[in-house]
Simulated assay, not measured.
Amino acid sequence: MTLRFSEICIDAHDIHALSSWWSTVLGWPAEPTDDGDIVLRAPTGADWLFLAVPDGKVVKNRIHFDFTPDDQQAEVERVLALGARRVDIGQGEQSWVVLADPEGNEFCILARG
């Protein structure tokens, strides 16, 4: 039996706002699904599917995204300007920067190389 990774499902209180935010950050198109969800079409084929949930995020993520940009500082500044915020999850002094999206989901922007 073979499994193929097809999508990442992201719970969101406001799927339209959060998917729009990530669409802007990543430059991926967002489109509604027949089920009323929102999907971001990733160029790699592993789409991001935003699913509506009634509650907000309350604890640290058990899984998160790492991104490696060409210019870490420029990318951190760009994403912060779009509405991300810096978060401290106990990482201490590291080469990566931990941020959170508008609904509080943590992600990291790594140093290149």
Rank of each mutant, 00 (worst) to 15 (best):
residue 9 C to Y: 13
residue 36 G to I: 12
residue 88 D to W: 02
residue 97 V to N: 09
residue 76 V to W: 00
residue 19 S to E: 02
residue 106 E to G: 10
residue 108 C to N: 09
residue 112 R to N: 06
residue 111 A to L: 06
residue 97 V to F: 01
residue 20 S to R: 09
residue 11 D to T: 13
residue 113 G to E: 07
residue 78 R to K: 10
residue 23 S to A: 15
residue 71 D to M: 12
residue 6 S to D: 05
residue 52 A to N: 00
residue 97 V to R: 11
residue 57 K to V: 11
residue 100 A to E: 04
residue 19 S to A: 07
residue 56 G to R: 08
residue 110 L to S: 13
residue 55 D to I: 15
residue 73 Q to K: 15
residue 21 W to R: 11
residue 79 V to W: 01
residue 58 V to S: 14
residue 103 E to T: 10
residue 52 A to D: 01
residue 57 K to F: 04
residue 92 G to K: 09
residue 95 S to N: 13
residue 28 W to M: 01
residue 43 P to Q: 14
residue 77 E to M: 10
residue 28 W to F: 15
residue 110 L to K: 12
residue 57 K to D: 02
residue 33 T to Y: 00
residue 111 A to N: 15
residue 2 T to G: 04
residue 22 W to T: 00
residue 103 E to P: 06
residue 106 E to M: 13
residue 109 I to C: 11
residue 24 T to G: 00
residue 30 A to K: 06
residue 60 K to L: 08
residue 97 V to C: 10
residue 46 A to P: 07
residue 81 A to H: 10
residue 77 E to P: 14
residue 17 A to Q: 03
residue 81 A to L: 05
residue 107 F to H: 06
residue 73 Q to H: 15
residue 4 R to W: 02
residue 8 I to N: 07
residue 29 P to F: 06
residue 93 E to N: 05
residue 82 L to W: 10
residue 68 T to Y: 09
residue 9 C to N: 15
residue 39 V to Q: 00
residue 27 G to L: 07
residue 52 A to Y: 02
residue 25 V to M: 07
residue 50 F to T: 03
residue 98 V to H: 07
